[in-house]
């Protein structure tokens, strides 16, 4: 029973250190494979190996100029921009109504509007597929924009509602008493103050759409599809080394968008 006395604090500190080391190791183990593709994308054009045996930009050359990968990239871009715009146009007024309005059943309207966050994405994809098929617009770019707007709007609503909580309601009251109508107040007072939140929500929506596979896979047609779907289908037939370059490209785009977001947040 005469175990040497150990201060509780020291024992606690040691186990905390052990815990955080384990966590870091776990993260690295999961993250590293994603980063491995970056050096691989600078390998030669015929094989995917790590570490690359020779360095070149041949894979990027192929991606940008010699393949049909670029058309998918542009399509992803257009869809993401369209879906983001739609999500903002729908989501910001919805958030305003939910944050400022006072009507019966508001709780249920909120739940309904945010439900796409809770429903499994595969279920949304399937639903959209049947719906768009009955409308006869499956496979169109418009269908993709609508589909991704369904997916991203709840996130714009959530960020806008959080932003609205930081917009002092007294400012809106003051504007109203000074004679401004609801629309004037919204566009001249609320919206300018909400801009950072809308911007953050918009970037998030853009990234979500740009990365999205499941919905796009269900409602686009084989010939014209988005970048992630093309990656997914191409991997089923052959593992083209260009995939490494595409992955690097996607990672860089995400990183840039995140950096823009962080930069705007600081300002």
């Amino acid at each position: 029973m005469a175990a040497p006395e150990q201060p509780v604090g020291a024992r606690f500190a040691r186990s905390a250190m052990l815990l955080s080391a384990t966590a870091w190791f776990g993260y690295l183990f999961l993250l590293l494979p994603s980063f491995v593709v970056i050096p691989m994308s600078f390998g030669n054009a015929f094989e995917m190996v790590f570490p690359p045996r020779s360095l070149s930009t041949a894979l990027f050359h192929k991606f940008f100029f010699e393949s049909n990968w670029m058309s998918a990239t542009w399509m992803s871009f257009r869809v993401a921009v369209g879906a983001t715009a739609l999500a903002i146009v729908l989501g910001v007024p919805a958030a305003y109504s939910l944050a400022r309005g006072n009507y019966p059943g508001k709780k249920y309207v909120t739940m309904l509007l945010l439900s796409p966050i809770l429903v499994p994405i595969i279920v949304i994809a399937l639903g959209l597929y049947f719906h768009f098929a009955s409308l006869g617009i499956t496979g169109s770019e418009l269908a993709l924009i609508f589909g991704h707007a369904v997916y991203t709007t709840p996130f714009v609503i959530v960020t806008s509602m959080a932003g609205l909580r930081h917009v002092d309601q007294n400012l809106e009251t003051a504007a109203t008493i000074m004679g401004a109508g609801p629309l004037y107040t919204f566009f001249r007072v609320t919206l300018p103050l909400l801009k950072p939140a809308i911007f953050a929500g918009g970037l998030f929506a853009f990234l979500m759409s740009f990365d999205e596979v499941v919905i796009a896979y269900f409602i686009s047609k084989a010939g014209s599809t988005t970048l992630p779907v093309k990656m997914f289908s191409s991997i089923q037939w052959e593992i083209s080394p260009v995939l490494a370059a595409v992955s690097t490209f996607l990672t860089v785009i995400s990183l840039i968008v995140c950096l823009i977001g962080a930069f705007m947040q600081k300002k």
Partner: peptide, 19 residues
Amino acid sequence: PPNKRGLGMVFQNYALMPH
């Protein structure tokens, strides 16, 4: 409605438009 009443109001937290 309040925007048609032609009143003025001064608030404790000033309520100046920060932007």
